[in-house]
């Protein structure tokens, strides 16, 4: 597997470290249901057979966290974004909605 880091270009798999599902984000600790939400966040990550969004870290490169869209059946990677960009957009959207 090779991942195209937005900063460093296409690099071999062994430069990267895997974290997992990027679809669930850290819940609001002030939420009345925080205990349950944190449980889901930490333990019930999506485990689907098909295209998934997941967090990878460019350990042997620029130390960027990446949101990689990858098919777990074929290992084919269709998209790579900087996690910081995805997260910034998410926060703006949330703020806008609120």
């Amino acid at each position: 597997m090779r991942i195209r880091c937005p900063h460093c270009g296409e690099r071999a798999l062994d430069e990267f470290t895997y974290l997992g599902d990027a679809s669930i984000t850290r819940p609001d600790p002030a939420s009345p249901d925080a205990a349950s939400e944190f449980y889901t966040y930490a333990y019930e990550r999506r485990n689907i057979a098909g295209p998934t969004q997941e967090l990878w870290y460019h350990q042997a490169g620029c130390h960027s966290w990446l949101v990689v869209t990858r098919d777990t059946r074929t290992h084919e990677i269709s998209d790579v974004k900087l996690a910081e960009d995805v997260a910034s957009k998410r926060i703006k959207t949330t703020a806008g909605a609120a």
Partner: peptide, 13 residues
């Protein structure tokens, strides 16, 4: 290998 997979195969590293 370290990443989620349903492919029944791994990689060279």
């Amino acid at each position: 290998d370290g990443y989620n997979s349903y492919a029944q195969r791994g990689n060279l590293p």
